[in-house]
Each structure stands twice: as C-alpha cells, then as structure tokens.
Nucleic acid binder design. Sequence first.
DNA 1: AAACAGATCTACT
DNA 2: GTAGATCTGTTTT
Length: 207
Amino acid sequence: MTGSADLAFLEGPVLEVAPRLLGAVVRAGEVAVRLTEVEAYDGENDPGSHAFRGPTARNRVMFGPAGHLYVYFTYGMHHCCNVVCGTPGTASAVLLRAGEVVDGLEIARSRRPGVPDRDLARGPALLCRTLAITTRDDGTDLTGGHIRLDPAPPADAGVQIETGPRVGLRHAAERPWRFWIAGDPTVSRYRPAVLRDRSAARRRGTS
DNA sequence: AAACAGATCTACT
DNA sequence: GTAGATCTGTTTT
C-alpha cells in the first residue's frame, strides 16, 4: 500500500490499458474507489477526444507521460477525470466513469448526503465529487502523491468484462470503447449516446 | 471581448 | 423514460 505503484502498464495502447484499469483503486486522501467502469479515448485519432484537434491549454496534460491525471470541467458544474496513458506525444487517456467506494466511506457519504452507498461514485462527475477531485488536481502524478492509483489486484485479473458504446458523445459515439465489470451494481446506467442534433438531420432531409 | 460547447445529472411524468 | 437546467472554462475573433 505504501511506496510507489507500478504504473508501467499505462504506457500501452489505450484499448489495452482501459480494461486493465477495471479493479484498480484510486485513492484521494482518505477516500478510495475501486474502478468498475471506464472509457477509452484515443487522442488525435479519436473524434470523441478533447485532444482530437491537437494540444491546447486545457488538454496539454494528455500529451504528457502516462500515469498523470487529466481533469476537466464541464456543464458549468461537473468535474471528470482521466488517467493519461500511452507514450508522451500521444494523447490517449481513460475516463474514470464509475466505481465502488472501498475506503473512507464516512467521508464519502458526508460529501453526498442521503445517497445510497452504491451511487456514491456512479457516474464520472459523481466519482470526482466523492473523491473531491477538481481541476486543481489536473496533471497530478498518480504514482504516490495525495492522489494515487494502484493496479487491480490479481483477484480481479479474471473478472468478466463487458464493452459497449461510450456515453454522451457527439462524435464517434459508435466506437465500443466503454468497459465495465459485468453485473457490478455501481456501473452507471445512463442512456447510450443519442443523436441530439435534430436540426442538422432535418436540414439534410429536405434535399 | 464575445461566443461557444459540453466524455452530466437530477427531476419530473 | 425523457426533457431540460446549468454556467464555467475554453477557444476564437
């Protein structure tokens, strides 16, 4: 539990890294979450990635080395966090979508009063809220600081994994790059990505 | 300086 | 099951 975690596996291709993060534990201070649901984002090759159009002030962390945290803010009120993977220069990352609180339960509950335990980190913004992760933590090294990541224990190596489309994307929504632990109750159950842009479809339809 | 876009969540029927 | 609130940070001019 002490010392630095071995995060070398994060340097691989994002589609291999993402499923291996299931069962891994993210610890932020007193609260720890075991990951049950993640999504892969393949940087400049992926229209769904924030890095698709190249480096900017916001996404620069993703272009750096693996094992750091990329945190972004969206919808005016939500934080979401990713684990950067791949080699420097590539901008692949894995969105942490959901997990199970495995330590610091009292503190986690106090951050989300009245919520059932299984829902404490059920969804990417909720996971960040339960771990108190904000854009202040953007770029954090995960090998052993105030926020750290520990690989899935051997017991999780054989868990059954399911895949499906990523949630909520406008582009590349069809890629089945969402991974979750089969049957786990903490996996978010939001609707799959849907087409929102009816006006564009209508414009095209009147040809 | 201004416009845009959003990898969500909650509430409501 | 679905509609809509929400409003900041980022990007572009």
